[in-house]
Nucleic acid binder design. Structure first.
Lengths: 346, 346
DNA sequence: AGAGCGTGCGGAACCGCTTCCAGGAGTCAC
DNA sequence: GTGACTCCTGGAAGCGGTTCCGCACGCTCT
């Protein structure tokens, strides 16, 4: 392992000069800088991150805390973060903090306290008050994706508005009997509750009764809930707003199973634009988790440069993508139906 | 930030003794050890990882390199690795190495060279010769999940056998016209080719013609390929072996779309036991990527303890889970059909 | 009684880098 | 000629731990 002393010797300069030449800080003449870099390349010199961190206090590493890594949304966000960090030469260390596990406790108590990072990105963490205190106590810049706003910078979808627009899309098509599938379930995410509120407010504005069908935010969950809902002829709606695309796809599959053609007998709209959405011709409000991850990483990196930058709260607007899972209810041919296969912007 | 010097002062001992008391190495009397630990707790002392790494050469961190993080298999493996490492107090830093990206090049050239880890786990990496050389040149223990065997320890499913048993399951039910969907596509994974070989060998053993339908290893990919295959009445098989569950589910959806009832007109068997498999009543050969991740992490940790441990190659056997997507072909009532809803072990 | 050994502790070196500080050399203005 | 300034370089002091080495003490064994 060649150290900087070896490089310095090979280039005939002191360690100090070698360091300056390689980091690009301070005065070094062009010829010696070139000599040092050449020597470093020849020796295959790579600075020890431990030594650099110790000397500078910077780790060139950011921590990412998320409750799941094997869920579409989280995996996409992670991918975006990774991509942005990579471009800037930052490492990423991942902390899994599944709610209710002993591991989560240890992550907050031990792992994060080690501060092996210059900053932290919390994704959909929904920390308890105690946990939030700990995060802040770390004293490193913090950015949340899908977090509660307030003390930290946040990037998130405008969930209320997304749900509102999903609901309005069905209302515009002429639906009046519209159910919301998702949320209201033990251990569910906070966002589902918010989207539900967006739906309920919209229905109230339209003077229509709301109907909430609880469901886990997963494909099987949406399937099961929808089979229940659609199986009962008296409760059966003509339109479903799903809390996310997986639930929406579950609803579509349930409808097919029950012989209800989509969209002629049932319209379904989701939120996400999941990778499977296109295959199921799902009308949805697109959020781009990957981009949210990129934004979060860049926001954090920017804060490294300017530690006093103000706390920002970024609410992203979803884009309505109309595919073939929504149409006017049976018997109501609408003008809106004509454009139902093309993509539209808000 | 309290340092070890503060702790030492508070406990009335030297830095050396404080260090020994906290790391548990060397001779320290019980009373002073207790005093030091108490002082550390009171001050909220946490050792600087950078300083520890610099002094000991150990990072208490392992690197994970994978080409995708937002695919079911990879996310599951990652989850398993994370879990095992967490239990042993190790951090995990993630390196994204999507094939053909500039980022992958940088990961191998810069990021891995920094050696911010004690060891490396490569998941489904399929490194080029050049990349493999680099991995080895790092000089840290390396474990692969789904890798080519040889110089490094490997944990992987016995793909040939899994494909063989999937095929045999359909043969046993009486099928003779069996197609394999998956693999043979630009940028596809190596495993799909191996599974294809397992299928082809089994068909050859049975004296039956093989039929390979190329497809990306994804739900939409499997759907599209299956629509093509099943849409053509002359090519249409009575059974499909899919390279993975996502493809299998795509095939099931395609069959439903085309009005082909599963399993009465078409049997489908997958490999994975994906989280959606149960919902689609998919018969499949279960591999547990999560456990593969756990095994990989533990293998690596063990190697930290004993650096001279021999290279091991772990080939896992898949477990057949019979659900409701497979049955004897139309017109052949078989005894095997009677057990088609219960789980069986190999 | 003295050698030998296990135990407990402190001083100081060291891990590999950055950066402060001092100093030399050259240029320019007065 | 001298002071001020810029540019370049090297020595040395950290960063915050671990660990080698030496010393002191108390015990056992011959």
């Amino acid at each position: 392992m060649a150290g900087i002393a070896d490089v310095a010797r090979a280039a005939g300069v002191s360690k100090a000069t070698a360091s300056r030449a390689l980091t690009g800080s301070g005065y070094v003449s062009e010829p010696t800088k070139a000599r040092v870099q050449e020597a470093a390349a020849k020796l295959g010199y790579v600075a020890s991150t431990a030594a650099v961190s110790l000397a500078t206090g910077k780790t060139k590493n950011v921590g990412v805390v998320m409750p799941y890594v094997n869920r579409w949304f989280f995996a996409e966000v992670l991918d975006g973060i990774q991509d942005a960090l990579l471009r800037h030469g930052y490492d990423l260390t991942l902390y899994d903090a599944r709610p209710g596990t002993e591991g989560r406790v240890r992550v907050f108590d031990e792992f994060l306290a080690r501060k092996r990072f210059d900053g932290l990105i919390a994704v959909g963490l929904e920390p308890s008050d105690n946990e939030l205190d700990r995060l802040i106590a770390i004293g490193r810049p913090l950015v949340s994706v899908v977090g509660v706003s307030g003390t930290t910078s946040v990037i998130a979808l405008d969930d209320v508005n997304a749900a509102r627009r999903a609901t309005e899309h069905l209302l515009d098509l002429g639906h009046t009997n519209i159910a919301f599938v998702g949320g209201g379930v033990e251990g569910g995410a906070h966002v589902d509750g918010i989207r539900l509120e967006g739906y309920e407010a919209t229905m109230a504005d339209a003077g229509l009764p709301a109907c909430h069908v609880p469901s886990p935010a997963s494909l099987p969950g949406g399937y099961a809930a929808s089979v229940d809902l659609l199986g009962d002829v008296r409760r059966r709606p003509t339109g479903i707003v799903a809390t996310c695309d997986e639930v929406a796809i579950g609803a579509i599959i349930a409808a097919r199973r029950l012989g209800l053609p989509v969209p002629s007998s049932l319209s379904v709209v989701g939120i996400d634009n999941h990778e499977y959405a296109e295959m199921f011709s799902l009308t949805t409000l697109e959020q781009s988790p990957r981009e949210q991850g990129v934004h979060a990483a860049e926001l954090l990196l920017q804060r490294f440069r300017d530690p006093d930058a103000p706390v920002v709260e970024m609410r992203l607007q979803a884009t309505l993508i109309v595919r073939n899972s929504t149409a006017p209810p049976a018997g109501i041919p609408s003008a809106a139906a004509g454009v139902a296969t093309t993509r539209s912007v808000p």
